[in-house]
Amino acid sequence: MKQNDKKSAEDIIKYVGGIENISSLTHCVTRLRFVLKDMPKISQKNIENIPVVMKALETSGQYQVVIGPRVTDIYELIMGEIGNEPLESDVTENNEKIVDKIMSTISAIFTPYINILAAAGC
């Protein structure tokens, strides 16, 4: 891990509205995937100015922060800050079941690769 990763992780937490605004956090190959309690607390401009952040966007009920190949390092640092306990129960605030959330996340992970597969003729 690089020295600045800890500062970047702290800044990401701060600019998504703090620990108390995070319902859950997962990651895929390149992105942190936050489910936040209050989206207006996000400081979009500040997040996009963090050196490790390539892009940040809201999609499919998640706030996604694109980090790239170092996403696992940043994820582990954030989880160290917020604690390793689950951040939400089996049912979210809007009664969405955890299975639905998992399927939605899996779908969001593979969606960017559809164009590549189509272009490759697979």
Rank of each mutant, 00 (worst) to 15 (best):
E10P: 00
I13W: 06
D100S: 06
K45L: 09
E85D: 13
N115P: 01
I102W: 10
A56Q: 01
D100Y: 09
N46F: 05
D11C: 06
D90E: 14
S107F: 09
I47G: 04
A118W: 13
A56V: 04
S23Y: 13
G18A: 01
I13M: 04
E10R: 08
D90A: 11
T72V: 13
E20D: 14
K14S: 03
I82D: 04
F34K: 04
Q64Y: 02
K45C: 00
E20F: 08
L117G: 06
A56G: 10
V29N: 11
I78K: 04
I47K: 07
M54V: 11
T72Y: 14
P69A: 07
P86T: 10
T26K: 11
C28A: 07
G83R: 10
F110S: 06
D100A: 12
S8H: 06
A120V: 09
D38A: 07
I106K: 00
S8A: 09
P51T: 02
K55H: 12
N21V: 05
E20Q: 10
Q3H: 06
I50G: 02
G121R: 03
N94C: 11
V35T: 13
I98Y: 13
Y15G: 04
M54I: 15
E96I: 15
V53F: 04
I19M: 10
L87P: 05
L57T: 15
F34I: 02
E88R: 15
G61K: 08
Y113K: 12
K37H: 13
E85V: 00
L36R: 03
L117I: 10
P112S: 07
M79W: 08
N84W: 10
K2S: 00
V99D: 14
P51D: 07
G83I: 03
M103K: 14
K2T: 07
E96Q: 15
N4Q: 11
T105K: 00
N21L: 05
E76T: 07
R31G: 00
L77Y: 06
I82E: 06
T72W: 06
V29H: 09
P40D: 06
D5N: 07
I74K: 01
I98P: 05
V91G: 02
M39F: 12
T111F: 10
T59M: 15
K101G: 01
Q44V: 01
T30I: 01
S107R: 13
G80A: 08
K101L: 13
I12Y: 00
K41C: 08
N4I: 04
I67N: 01
A120P: 07
I109A: 06
T72E: 14
I82F: 05
